[in-house]
Every structure is written in structure tokens, then in C-alpha cells.
Design a protein around this nucleic acid. Structure first.
Lengths: 141, 141
DNA sequence: CTTCTATACTTGAGTTCGCAAGGATCATAG
DNA sequence: CTATGATCCTTGCGAACTCAAGTATAGAAG
């Protein structure tokens, strides 16, 4: 119960702040961050989907939006015509670097305030042990 | 990050199990449980909304569904014509008692397995300290 | 009594997603 | 080469929400 409540409250808050300041969804942000830390700032769409825990169709539509905003681009794969890469554009890089700052501040406010450093680590460790929650790393949030 | 991932994975899993066996959404279940533990198994719709962290309109539509399934009923308030109560029907009581069992087993499987009792308590305590996560109690999940 | 503000609820429109189905491509086995 | 099966992606449809706006009631203040 606590878990569900906490999630609903936190995402609502974080999402609305992100939306208000940068016109980004939490999911948008999530995808941009993944790309930002990916090699060559590029990922296969399917891997991207898995890493942010969306379905393939979810990613298609989400990227549609980011593409029309000019934050990411498409690129075909040479060796396998089935796959398409999502690539962060220069505008996308600027956007994420800009948004990261305020988002981290928001997180700090909501998570940092009530917890000590050790407690944060403890919380992260506990959550990491939940099944199904295993995704790629390389992220600072 | 871990928090968001964990939530996405867990709710997807729990929700689909609940849906498959009992034809209930996680939110449906949540509402039914709140009513189950409420005094006289009845609550003002607005309080229900706040306790499960939905908006007023969200509750209206959710209850529409539960009403047409015959699990909850409406009742007008004598002293204030603005408010309507949501009341658990007998069928609703049976439903929740039935669903509770398998849902608790699911939770046990996902949460119980990787954690010891102390760790679960620790996790709950940490989550409880998050801001905005304060809702009414009286729940065993 | 009237007016003004706050609260409870509903409804219409729009968003974000998942699922199922379909198309295209690859890889493997005969 | 061809058939089979898996993988990547997109699209139609529907579900679950939210927000904004509207209705109805309550309470307080003039």
C-alpha cells in the first residue's frame, strides 16, 4: 500500500513540475536520459522500450512526440533492416542538460529532505532486490 | 530511478494477475479494500478519492464500473445533499474477501520472497516518510 | 433574503498507455 | 531455395486517468 501511494504522489508531483517547466513527461525525460547516457547517444527502439519499462508500441508513440519536437531522430540500421535507432539530436542534448538540473533539484527536495544518505542507499538497495526491476544502469538519478 | 522501475514492473504484474483471476483493476481492488475497512462499509466519494490518490472525476468513472458490476451502491446523504456515499454491497464484500486471498499471495510472492520481515518493515518505514504519501490507514496490505 | 465563496460531484475532451494484430525482415533447417 | 519461426516495429482499438468547465448544494456575510 505504502508503495503504491508513494508512487502515485511522487510521480504526480515530479511529472507536473517537469511538465510545467520543460514541457516533458516523466517518461519523455526518462527516455532522453537513457539516450543521453547511451553509447553514441543512440539506442535500438526495442532496447529503449525495455530499459524504461514500456511496451514497443508505447515507445513508438512516445518517440513520435519527441521526434516532432526535434529532440530525437530516427536512423536505420545497416546490418539489420528491422531495427531503427533513436538518436538524440543536438537540441535533445541541450534539452536534457537543461531539464536534468531542475529535475534533480526536485528529486533532491522530495527524496533528499526526509532521508539521510545512508537511508537513501538502503532504500535503493531494497528496491533493487525486487523482481523484474532489473534494467540497464548508467544513470545518476 | 529504481523506484519508478520497481513500481512499473510490480504494478504491471500485480494488475494483470488480479485482472486475470478476478476481473479487477488494481485501482478497483484498492477502492474495494478502502470501503471494506471503512465504518459501515461506506465512504463519501471525495474521501475515497483522496485515500486512493485519484481525482474526483477518476472516482466517478471508477465507481461507475463497480456499480454496474453490482459491487458497490450509491446512497444519498441526509444532511448534505451534495455528497453521495459509496457503499459496498454484499456481492462486493464477497468479491473482496475472495480477491484478497489471491492478491495477498501475489504480494507475498513478489515482496515476501526477496525480503526478510525486518527488511519489509524497514522498507515500509522509509516509504512512509516520503512527503505526500499520507493517507488513511486501516489496511492490511 | 441575497450574494459570494467553497465544496461535492459529473461530464466532455484529450493524453498516455497496453494488447492484439499485421507487415517486414532475419536466421535456421531441410 | 524455401518454409518456419523469431524479432522489430507500427497501427487500431480500448482502458484508465487528468484537467477544465459546469451544476447543485452549503454556509457565511452583508
Amino acid at each position: 500500500m505504502r508503495f503504491l501511494r508513494a508512487h502515485a504522489a511522487l510521480t504526480r508531483e515530479l511529472s507536473s513540475r517537469l511538465e510545467a517547466v520543460h514541457e516533458l513527461t516523466l517518461s519523455d525525460f526518462d527516455v532522453l536520459v537513457q539516450l543521453y547516457y547511451a553509447e553514441n547517444r543512440r539506442m535500438r527502439r526495442i532496447d529503449l522500450a525495455r530499459s524504461v519499462l514500456l511496451t514497443a508500441s508505447g515507445i513508438t508513440r512516445l518517440l513520435d512526440g519527441l521526434e516532432s519536437s526535434g529532440l530525437v531522430g530516427k536512423e536505420r540500421c545497416e546490418s539489420d533492416a528491422r531495427v531503427t535507432y533513436a538518436v538524440l539530436t543536438d537540441a535533445g542534448v541541450r534539452k536534457i542538460e537543461e531539464a536534468r538540473e531542475s529535475h534533480l533539484a526536485d528529486i533532491e527536495e522530495l527524496f533528499g529532505a526526509p532521508f539521510s544518505r545512508e537511508e537513501l542507499q538502503q532504500l535503493a538497495d531494497l528496491l533493487a532486490r525486487l523482481p523484474l526491476a532489473h534494467t540497464s544502469e548508467a544513470c545518476s538519478a
